[in-house]
């Protein structure tokens, strides 16, 4: 436990001390929230109303977590830092949890900041905001484990390309945060419904609305992806550990 705690403490500090991480992870979602709320105040769009937009932004912010987790793991592999730690009594579980747990804390902080900003912009605060913040951990499992998977299999540059460009675009276009996905046609709608992004957004929206029965099927969908990707990430991490 103390080994894992020490390692996760290090992960946490690495994230917080990287200005790019802070800027994109915490700042960028806030900027988006502010800009889209400004549009909403001038040209009313139902999707940009705070109770619809804020849950979407909190989920979109998680795509940066994948990028940061992937880059950190990849960099650690590249610089022999992990090789050093492999010669210590640390167990594989210490590594996996040590990498992932701090990102859950970041996800909570990210969601909390978004809701504080939304409150300042006029969102009504109810107990459901608390649930929305806490249950961000459900999609966070998927995004953090995807980062671990990418970091265990790709170079830092490849992680930047795949997670920084592809994932953020997928998360933006196929999540229904800024526009109704049906506008893209039935094929895209079908693809989006098979991927976890739109379910993560709908899950958070339903939680904020207090509609837990609507949230459940979306949660199962996202959780299913999260568990599957976590299993793959653990396998990939152990594989690269063995390959060392």
């Amino acid at each position: 436990m103390s080994r894992m705690a020490s390692f996760s403490g290090r992960t946490f500090k690495e994230i917080l001390r990287d200005p790019l991480t802070l800027g994109f992870g915490l700042g960028f979602p806030l900027v988006l929230l502010l800009l889209l709320s400004l549009i909403q105040s001038n040209i009313p769009v139902s999707m940009f109303e705070l109770n619809t937009l804020t849950p979407g932004i909190t989920v979109f912010g998680l795509s940066f977590i994948t990028l940061f987790a992937g880059q950190l793991v990849s960099k650690d592999r590249d610089t022999s830092f992990l090789q050093r730690l492999y010669t210590t009594p640390m167990k594989p579980l210490d590594f996996v949890l040590g990498y992932m747990l701090p990102f859950f804390a970041i996800a909570i902080a990210q969601a909390l900041l978004c809701y504080v900003a939304a409150w300042i912009l006029g969102l009504e605060i109810t107990i459901n905001v608390l649930w929305s913040v806490l249950l961000i951990l459900v999609p966070a499992l998927f995004y953090a484990s995807l980062g671990l998977l990418c970091g265990s299999t790709l170079t830092e540059t490849q992680v930047g390309g795949l997670c920084g460009a592809l994932l953020t675009n997928l998360s933006a276009w196929l999540s229904g945060i800024w526009f109704n996905i049906s506008m893209l046609g039935s094929v895209f709608e079908k693809i989006a419904s098979l991927l976890p992004f739109i379910h993560a957004v709908e899950f958070e929206r339903a939680i904020l609305a207090g509609d837990f029965s609507t949230a459940l099927p979306h949660m199962l969908w996202v959780l299913g992806y999260g568990i599957a990707i976590t299993a793959l990430a653990v396998f990939a991490f152990l594989r690269q550990m063995k390959k060392q």
């Binding site: 020490s6 390692f7 290090r10 500090k13 990287d18 610089t79 022999s80 830092f81 210590t88």
Partner: peptide
């Protein structure tokens, strides 16, 4: 045993003291 790898295997965003503390932590 202990290994000092080819490259300087350190946590770059941690201070010198924090790096040493980290190693104490992972050794329990």
């Amino acid at each position: 045993i202990a290994v000092s790898p080819q490259q300087s295997a350190i946590a770059r965003n941690l201070s010198v003291k924090e790096n040493l503390k980290l190693m104490c932590g992972v050794h329990g």
